[in-house]
Amino acid sequence: MRSKIKHEEIPDKDGRNATFLKRTKGLKKKANELSILCGVDIGLVIHKKEQSNAVLWPSPESFWSRLQEFMEFRNEERKRRMTTHEGLMKQMVQGEMENLEKLKKAIQLKESRQLVMKSMQTDSFNGFGIDQLNAMNSFADHMIKKLQQRDNELNEDEH
C-alpha cells in the first residue's frame, strides 16, 4: 500500500531531484497522451528555481513554434472580436437615430391622416396652413403608393 505524499518541498536534495525527474517524465507522458487523444498542440515549460536550464517539451523548436502560433492566434482573435467602446456607442447611436426617423415618419403619417379626416368632415381646406397642406399631400402620396403596391400584389396573384 502506498503512503500519502505530503505536498511540500522535499528537504533532501537527492530525493527532490529523483522526484523531479520521475514527475517530469510522467508529466511529459500525460501531455503526449492528451495531445494524441484530443488532437491538440501542447507545450510545456518546466523550470527549476534558481537554475537557468528550463525544459521545453516536446522540443525547444516545437515549443517556440507552438507558442508563437498561440500568441498570433490570440492577437488575431482579439482584433477580430474587439469592439471599441467608441465604435459600440456609434453603432448604438446610429441605430437609435434610424429608429427616431422611423418614429417621426409614423407620427407625421398619423397627423396627416388626422388632417385629411378633419378636412373631409368639414368638406373644406380653409384654415389649413401650408405645412398642414404639405403634410396632407405627403399622406396622399403615401396612400397612393400603398394602393399601387396592393394593386400589383393582386395582379400578380391573378397571373
Rank of each mutant, 00 (worst) to 15 (best):
residue 38 C to H: 14
residue 80 R to H: 08
residue 145 K to H: 15
residue 109 L to F: 11
residue 60 P to E: 03
residue 138 S to P: 00
residue 157 D to M: 14
residue 146 K to M: 07
residue 158 E to N: 11
residue 9 E to C: 11
residue 121 Q to I: 03
residue 21 L to S: 07
residue 53 N to M: 01
residue 140 A to S: 11
residue 64 W to H: 15
residue 156 E to R: 14
residue 92 M to E: 13
residue 39 G to T: 03
residue 2 R to C: 11
residue 112 S to C: 13
residue 104 K to H: 14
residue 88 L to E: 12
residue 111 E to R: 11
residue 60 P to C: 02
residue 88 L to F: 15
residue 85 H to I: 08
residue 125 F to I: 07
residue 135 A to M: 10
residue 140 A to V: 14
residue 132 Q to K: 04
residue 38 C to P: 00
residue 4 K to C: 03
residue 47 H to C: 08
residue 58 P to T: 03
residue 45 V to F: 00
residue 66 R to D: 01
residue 99 N to Y: 09
residue 86 E to G: 02
residue 77 E to Q: 10
residue 89 M to F: 07
residue 56 L to Y: 09
residue 135 A to F: 00
residue 81 R to E: 05
residue 136 M to V: 06
residue 83 T to K: 07
residue 102 K to S: 10
residue 20 F to I: 07
residue 102 K to A: 10
residue 159 H to Y: 15
residue 148 Q to I: 13
residue 101 E to G: 07
residue 52 S to D: 15
residue 12 D to K: 06
residue 91 Q to L: 15
residue 88 L to R: 04
residue 31 A to S: 12
residue 72 E to Y: 12
residue 73 F to W: 07
residue 143 M to D: 09
residue 129 G to E: 14
residue 150 R to S: 07
residue 150 R to I: 14
residue 61 E to N: 10
residue 142 H to L: 01
residue 156 E to A: 14
residue 93 V to H: 04
residue 2 R to E: 12
residue 74 R to W: 03
residue 35 S to F: 00
residue 87 G to Y: 08
residue 91 Q to T: 14
residue 144 I to D: 01
residue 81 R to V: 00
residue 142 H to G: 02
residue 141 D to F: 02
residue 140 A to G: 05
residue 3 S to I: 09
residue 44 L to R: 03
residue 98 E to D: 11
residue 14 D to M: 10
residue 110 K to N: 14
residue 29 K to W: 04
residue 139 F to P: 00
residue 156 E to S: 09
residue 132 Q to N: 01
residue 140 A to N: 08
residue 44 L to N: 03
residue 58 P to N: 08
residue 65 S to C: 13
residue 13 K to T: 08
residue 106 A to Q: 06
residue 60 P to H: 03
residue 80 R to D: 08
residue 126 N to K: 13
residue 95 G to P: 04
residue 131 D to V: 01
residue 68 Q to I: 03
residue 1 M to P: 03
residue 155 N to Y: 06
residue 105 K to H: 08
residue 35 S to V: 02
residue 90 K to W: 10
residue 36 I to R: 11
residue 119 S to A: 14
residue 156 E to H: 13
residue 131 D to Q: 11
residue 115 L to K: 04
residue 9 E to H: 09
residue 82 M to W: 09
residue 148 Q to V: 15
residue 45 V to N: 05
residue 151 D to A: 15
residue 118 K to Y: 10
residue 46 I to P: 00
residue 137 N to Y: 12
residue 53 N to R: 06
residue 136 M to N: 04
residue 15 G to T: 06
residue 130 I to V: 07
residue 10 I to P: 04
residue 87 G to L: 11
residue 133 L to E: 01
residue 105 K to N: 08
residue 78 R to P: 00
residue 82 M to P: 00
residue 3 S to C: 13
residue 135 A to Y: 01
residue 64 W to V: 09
residue 21 L to T: 15
residue 94 Q to W: 04
residue 146 K to R: 12
residue 47 H to G: 00
residue 147 L to N: 14
residue 105 K to R: 05
residue 77 E to P: 01
residue 104 K to F: 11
residue 133 L to A: 01
residue 95 G to A: 12
residue 42 I to C: 01
residue 79 K to P: 01
residue 53 N to W: 08
residue 109 L to P: 05
residue 73 F to M: 01
residue 6 K to P: 06
residue 137 N to R: 10
residue 143 M to G: 00
residue 4 K to Y: 09
residue 27 L to Q: 05
residue 126 N to E: 07
residue 124 S to V: 11
residue 9 E to G: 13
residue 100 L to N: 10
